Amino acid sequence: METERTFWQRYGGQILLLVVAALLFSGSQLGRIGLFSEAVAADTAVTIPPTPIPSLEQEVTAAADTAVTQTNISLASLPVISDNSLAPLPNPHTYTARPPSHHFQTHVVTGNDTPGTIAEQYGISTDTLIGGNPGLNREANLLQTGAELVILPVDGVLHTVKPGDTLESIADLYGVPVEDIINYEPNNLEYPFFRLIPETQLVIPGASIGQFYFKAPKSVGNNSGGEQKWAVVGTGTFVWPVNGRCLTQFYHGFHPAIDVSTAEGSPVYAADTGTVTYASYAAGTYYDYGNLIVVNHGNGYETFYAHLSGINVYPGQIVNQGDLIGATGNTGRSSGPHLHFEIRLNDFRLNPLDRLSGPVKSCN
């Protein structure tokens, strides 16, 4: 072991020098081989004559000579590359309106019920009772035993949404603020869309069906003192406006008028002398009346003629007692051809039978 260590100490440096010399010799031989290859390549190179550059005319001629006839390739077999990176999702998330969620009480009519007692029982007005029951008709037998009535939780009207309705048009129709309709929670009108769904029903708080509150114009002119001026004044007595005496509906608090059954198109006469103040299809919340004529008799009395099929007079026209003014019909909220007739004194609805003479009978 000692002898082996003495050997490397004595001859290690020389051995290292020999290894380095061998590596240098090998590298020089490789370089000579590369130079020799380049020399051989240079000796055997072939001189290539320069290619002449053709003129423009020659290029055109050559292109025409070598032109290849195009082949019609069908595109149907080619793959279709579709980029859907910007296409909308097939089922985008859009706003869907919620229908109203009403939960109404109902009342089944008994033989002793009256509109007043039902309204009092539930703390609503008689007008709200009919406002919550669009199927009811002031011109028919409203309180039939066994009928089921909707009881609105607040005074108002149950409105069925029609195509084209907007919150603004409904609010204008009933004369209430839009906010009142929105703020009634079961209507489910959500900010910011407030979208309406046709054929659903909205509660219109504070609204009235309107018929009991309709007031025709009171004057066609005033005198110098600002008082109403009428060209004629009625007699204060009234004649029957139609020839029939068969009543389908008598006067009561829920129906402050009489309904006289007639064939459609029967003549309607002015019950007293006066001035026509309204002659048109009743608009807005008063659509119940249909075609309506109102005559002001200049002495506090007015007469109303509703559901007409024809109107033969115009506002401002003077009519005499017994003059033909229209024809009976079935327009507005009506259950069949008849005349709805009212007599009012200073806007209070009187029982017409207290002002008309002769016997009557019930058609029910």
Rank of each mutant, 00 (worst) to 15 (best):
P90C: 11
E59K: 14
G290F: 04
L247Y: 01
W230M: 10
V178H: 07
G135V: 09
E199G: 01
A76C: 08
T110I: 12
E227K: 04
L356Q: 09
A87F: 05
Y269C: 04
Y305K: 03
L350Y: 11
E179V: 08
I258Q: 06
Y301I: 06
T114E: 08
S224P: 02
I197M: 06
K215I: 14
P134K: 10
P90W: 09
G310I: 00
I15A: 13
F194H: 14
P134S: 11
A41P: 06
G298Y: 03
A283K: 14
Q211F: 12
S357R: 13
S219T: 15
N330H: 13
D127T: 10
G13D: 12
E120F: 08
P198D: 11
P256D: 05
L356H: 06
A39D: 15
I53E: 12
N364I: 00
G12M: 07
G265K: 10
R344E: 07
P177Y: 07
E4N: 08
P315E: 14
I182W: 00
P100Y: 01
L142D: 02
P79T: 06
L17W: 15
P267S: 14
D272T: 10
L173T: 13
G175E: 11
T117S: 13
L86T: 15
G156F: 04
W240V: 11
T126K: 06
S266Q: 12
D288Y: 09
Q105V: 09
Y191K: 11
P177F: 01
L350T: 11
S362Q: 03
G132H: 06
Y122S: 11
D323P: 10
Q228F: 15
G326V: 05
P49A: 14
G31A: 14
D354N: 15
G332R: 07
T69G: 03
G236A: 10
G336M: 00
P115E: 00
A140H: 07
G34D: 11
A327S: 15
P90R: 11
S309W: 08
F304A: 05
V68D: 04
G274S: 04
S309L: 03
V268G: 00
G298V: 11
T117A: 06
H307A: 05
G210N: 10
V233A: 07
E179N: 13
K215N: 14
H307T: 01
M1L: 12
T275H: 00
N364D: 01
S169T: 13
K229I: 07
A271H: 04
G13P: 02
G284M: 06
V150E: 08
L345A: 09
V295E: 05
T110M: 03
G12I: 12
V319H: 03
C363Q: 04
N243C: 04
T262P: 01
I118L: 03
N137L: 02
E264P: 03
E264F: 00
N296Y: 02
L23P: 01
V360W: 00
G132S: 02
E264I: 12
E38D: 15
P186T: 10
S85N: 14
L345K: 15
G322Y: 14
D288W: 08
Q144E: 15
F348G: 03
D347S: 12
D172I: 05
I325T: 05
L196Q: 01
Y11A: 10
G326Y: 05
P134E: 00
V80I: 15
H297Q: 07
D347M: 04
N187Q: 05
V239T: 13
L339M: 09
E227C: 05
Q105H: 14
I318A: 00
R98S: 12
K162D: 04
L16N: 12
Y289W: 11
F341L: 00
